[in-house]
Design a protein around this nucleic acid. Structure first.
Lengths: 153, 153
DNA sequence: AACCAATCGGACAATTTTATCTTATTGTAT
DNA sequence: ATACAATAAGATAAAATTGTCCGATTGGTT
């Protein structure tokens, strides 16, 4: 059993959702458009987005003008919400050395190290929202468009 | 391209090396013995240990009484040394969102989050040695054998 | 009502990872 | 020298992951 931080599938999902979040308007996004813009294989992306729709992270709409859109407010969707339905994140809770018994009291030699690492990983996933990402401007961006940065609250 | 913290292969390697480190004596360990004790498939383990021997982390000895042993002092072998030959760890340096350009100045929305996460991961791998692990006693151990713990320096 | 765009879902194909098996070779001990 | 224990190495198989294709279905538009 492997401990992926991010499978290919998870990365594709992030790319797509980040694209959708940054696009901003509440309209449905077609799979083709997202695939085009993010470089993700369209058919595979469709499957991934369908899974996220089943997990209530996205809403899908069939028919003309249909597609996918984020189902909740952007600040209510964490990276964890996106990745969890696609990968078995519980795998991080299992003992790295495969010991049957491994917890804070009876620990394998790597238990604490591993707990710290995976804790930070999962913590970051849970505390970062699509809103954070949509708002993000890189240093270069801020230099080019200084008026957009550091606005009053 | 997926970002594994630890593939099955990597986990097997850790289990085996931790077993060897904790066994302690400088003798060669047979693959069968290690496989038995760690629950790793013997033939597959052989392949993994051979890779680590090629990477100079282990030494192998053929013939009667042969097997594998750690090639350096335990405090000179980090977890990174063990995992690096088996997985492509550079994958952590690549942009999570697949952007061609992504660095501290021109960053993708996840660059900093990801850099922190992977930084802690790689840091832990580089700073934890087999010696640390061989020395490790769990809380329960220390209660059972208090004389072994907290000895004078 | 008929049409059309787009998802849905299942089947299938390719690739990568993991695992096994078999044979050859090496090196030590008797 | 011979036997034996154990690695080395290559071929192959199984499983999981990733990717493709296609027909069915849905739902809005004209």
């Amino acid at each position: 059993m492997s401990r992926e931080m991010l499978t290919q599938t998870g990365e594709y999902a992030l790319r797509a959702l980040v694209y959708m979040a940054r696009k901003g308007n509440g309209a449905y996004c077609g799979v083709k458009e997202i695939a085009q813009e993010t470089g993700v294989p369209a058919n595979y992306l469709a499957k991934i987005l369908q899974q996220l729709a089943r997990a209530k992270v996205l809403e899908s709409q069939k028919g003309f003008g249909g597609g996918f859109k984020v189902a909740r407010r952007l600040d209510k969707v964490t990276l964890f919400d996106i990745i969890d339905p696609l990968e078995r994140i519980e795998k991080f809770k299992q003992c790295v050395l495969g010991q049957r018994l491994c917890n804070d009291a009876v620990a394998c030699p790597l238990h604490h190290t591993w707990k710290a690492i995976s804790g930070q990983y999962l913590g970051s996933l849970r505390s970062t929202t699509l809103q954070d990402i949509a708002d993000f401007r890189s240093v270069a961006d801020r230099i080019e468009h200084p008026e957009d940065a550091a606005q009053a609250p």
